[in-house]
Write a protein that binds this DNA or RNA. Structure first.
Lengths: 182, 182
DNA sequence: CCCTCTTGTTCAGTATTCTAACCATGCCTA
DNA sequence: TAGGCATGGTTAGAATACTGAACAAGAGGG
């Protein structure tokens, strides 16, 4: 939540609009606009959405413009992978947790024997990956194939997909998703 | 603000995490998580950010995945341009106001005699446009040129830029910006 | 069957956002 | 100078987000 206020003020100023004008168009009180722009309060998503609407922008656009250029070390140690799932049958460990303006979700996935992501699901993004160890049956749309170490995949996440470990040992996969949704 | 809750729940479930687990990692109470996921309250940006953090996602990623496939008429009449600025010296009228998943901000800009966007500013996006009528002096970075009807431009918005009407009549420009931030 | 551990939901109380009315300032015009 | 009308900021009270504890439903396990 980096200086939302400042950015909002810029957007408004750029349009030669007053706080009151934006308030009128968005249905939010001008005092709230003032407070939000000066980071004295964190608006609810609904409120922010209404304001952006009045400015002809969208939540999507607003946030995709956020966190632009910040310096950060490009290196991460082997101990810096962060578990983002609950390591029972499948473990998802991500790289670069706090990297600014992260556009990629790089995952090290470990599938226990018989592990299965279950119901094919879909979300809008693109993902690619490769099997490091073991054997994984990957289903994308109506295509299905067993991938072994060295094999890889690349597909649009909107296609329903599913992963299943078919080896009699744990399998590992290294994958990348962008945008970092999963 | 389309079903934020549903999407959040999907993200969580996909990770095999419980409401309580996410609460612990995000510092938000598990009851809030429950309420938010069922759209019974609209979280503040701070809160949402904390939750997404615990799920390994970002505001940017979360919203860029939002509003995917919704049907909508592709046609807009000449009377459907919406003024998003305050028409004094410069008028900004945008197209497709309520178009779902809008990725482009198409603008019809009208500059009064002597109008000037003033201080060069910058934001992260890409924009292109062409002069329809009159003459506009465009400055991008350290380059400056006068464009007349038919001339165009295309640049990365991160470069500081500025527009100035140098004709002795109103000038009009048709432009596009993506993502729809401006 | 009871016990316990897990899951998510409900609810009363607290903290925060949000609003409405008021205030301060600056810029016109008379 | 006063008066009007912009601008944005402040503040008490209403509305809502948020919390913690209590509740309900299900899954084993003895």
């Amino acid at each position: 939540m980096p200086k939302i206020g400042t950015r909002l003020r810029e957007l408004r100023r750029r349009r030669n609009l007053g706080v009151r004008e934006v308030a009128l168009r968005s249905g939010i009180s001008h005092s709230s606009i003032s407070l939000i722009e000066r980071d004295r309060m964190s608006p609810s998503v609904d409120t922010l959405s209404a304001i952006l609407d009045a400015l002809g922008t969208t939540l999507t656009g607003f946030f995709s413009d956020l966190n632009s250029a910040v310096r950060h070390s490009p290196f991460y140690g082997a101990d810096e992978w962060v578990e983002i799932g609950k390591a029972q049958t499948i473990s998802y460990r991500m790289l670069g947790m706090n990297h600014p303006n992260r556009q990629i979700l790089m995952l090290h996935e470990t599938y226990a024997v018989g592990a299965d992501t279950g119901e094919p699901f879909s979300h809008s993004a693109q993902e690619a990956g490769t099997v490091l160890h073991g054997a994984v049956e990957v289903t994308v749309g109506d295509e299905c194939r067993v991938l072994k170490a060295g094999d890889g995949y690349y597909f649009d996440s909107r296609m329903p997909h599913r992963f299943r470990n078919v080896a009699n040992e744990p399998s590992t996969v290294l994958s990348a998703v962008t945008p970092p949704t999963y």
